[in-house]
Nucleic acid binder design. Sequence first.
DNA 1: ATTAAAAGTGGGATCGATTCCACATTAGAC
DNA 2: GTCTAATGTGGAATCGATCCCACTTTTAAT
Lengths: 327, 327
Amino acid sequence: MTTINDIARLANVSRSTVSRHLNKNGYVSQEAQERIDKVIEETGYFPSQSAKSLRTKKTGVVGVILPKISTETASRVVDGINQVLQENDYQMLLTQTLLEKEKEIAFIRLLQSRNVDGIILLGTNTDEALVEEIKKSDVPVVVLGQDMPGTTSIHYPDYKATAEMISYMIEKGYRDISFIGVPEDDPAVGIVRKKAYIDTLKEHNLPVLTERITYGDFSINSGYHAMETIMKQSTKPDAVFVVTDNMAVGAMQYLKENHYNIPADIGMATTGVSRLSKYIEPVLTTIDFQNEEAGAAITRLLMGQLNGYKKTKKLTHTYRRLTGNSL
Amino acid sequence: MTTINDIARLANVSRSTVSRHLNKNGYVSQEAQERIDKVIEETGYFPSQSAKSLRTKKTGVVGVILPKISTETASRVVDGINQVLQENDYQMLLTQTLLEKEKEIAFIRLLQSRNVDGIILLGTNTDEALVEEIKKSDVPVVVLGQDMPGTTSIHYPDYKATAEMISYMIEKGYRDISFIGVPEDDPAVGIVRKKAYIDTLKEHNLPVLTERITYGDFSINSGYHAMETIMKQSTKPDAVFVVTDNMAVGAMQYLKENHYNIPADIGMATTGVSRLSKYIEPVLTTIDFQNEEAGAAITRLLMGQLNGYKKTKKLTHTYRRLTGNSL
DNA sequence: ATTAAAAGTGGGATCGATTCCACATTAGAC
DNA sequence: GTCTAATGTGGAATCGATCCCACTTTTAAT
């Protein structure tokens, strides 16, 4: 491999001069620049990032930790992240936890050992151990999707969007709305969205029935089974709200297989699957959290931190309701 | 930041001993090991990957170049890649070209400057310039999706799968099948699949009409417009085959908006959208190229190359036909 | 008891860049 | 024509690891 020393020798200058030219700092004569450029061109030289970052403590790489890439939500967020990183000449080191919590902590360490300049975490919990690990981190960590204590983070408007959707369902005439949620480990999705559901029912003087509240684990399959549990109850609800896209797909699969008509037999609303919801029949009424923009926004916050901004920031992202004919 | 020297000093050994212990080569006494472990535990030390890879020329990072992550096909491939990389303790540096060809070449260089150990390219063309760049690469490059000259690659069974699907459509009674393809820059999708379509029509003594062959650019939108072009012709076809998932979604959108009934008015078949095709109404008949497994397979080939296997390998991946009611 | 092999350790060179510093040359100001 | 500032250059230290080599101590074999 060609090194800076080879270039220096071939161009008849010192390696300091080559470095100065490459980084455009300090003085280099016109002639020297030309000789260096010529040699670089001929050899196809590119500086070793390892050596560079050993000296400068910067790698130009940002680590991204997410549960699983092959979901619409995650891949859209990554699109947004990528866009901002590219604008700022950063690269992305991608890791997947597959929803194993310990891996979030392990990856924060691993990414640091790889000397990333910063870390973006798509949050799935706010456990004490995780908060601690973030606090200990040498590099800035920003979080999307959870209100992570003491950390710059953007979370979705879980409460507002859910409450509004439930209100909308009630307006539409539904009176017995069931709920497919996730465990409380995930505060944003597991606690806040459930609370919004319960609060809104109460506000409208509707009963909150524990048997109408079921849980899945984010997977398509778990949505299927949660829906099954609900529909096997002695009395059936007239609608269902599913907290995530993947589980909604599973729930819909159960309903289709068992020949329930949506929305005639049961209304359905969810969050996510925004891009594909309109090709699914019936067209899903869903909350679009605008994941690309959220990914871009959290990345901009990280860029800010990398440029020395120290204070932690808390933002709530926006959303739009997409109205289909599933209600 | 804690370095190996700090650990050495605190544990009262030399930095060589710490290194030997960490890498489990050479001799280190039991007591020394314990002292070192204790200090590492206390300080939360992790070795600097930059320094390490400057010496060893290995980073444990594999670069992945793909057109766009937020498509079902790409994200499933990445899932497969990730799985194998994780098993082998590699990390993934992800880049997106957004279908700009020059970026494929630029990223091959960039990734090398970042000292990745190998590169996985989701191929979109086999241009001379790209082939040259791959040949010049210091690190192994493997390609998925194209039969890249001189390079270890896995391509999909484009011809066979397409021909079989067209045959199946003909068996089903369709006689005027239109085609939405992509430009020939992409040999696998643009040339081979079209050839299979044409050959199969000919084999069955059906006319090949140029006006039935349209092109898109992989985007949903282009699928929409291609479908529009076809349906605005004086005589309408009785079926359409769309070469990629995204474009199929667009084509379907056009048909739905204009109240064409699938399959009564027009039959439809495609490749991809395998995971979601069954939730779309009608359930799409599609070719599933089993992208996770393809991603895993190409990554295994790369791992082989990293372990010294030198010969270039050419493989064809498998597929399954998923039968829906869109035909 | 002698000796060779095994076990254990530290010093120093090295990887390829950046960056500080000393020094030489040139240009411009008076 | 001096003097200072700007321009231009190379040497050497440094980043944090690996790894070869030299050396000492322990163990085991004869």
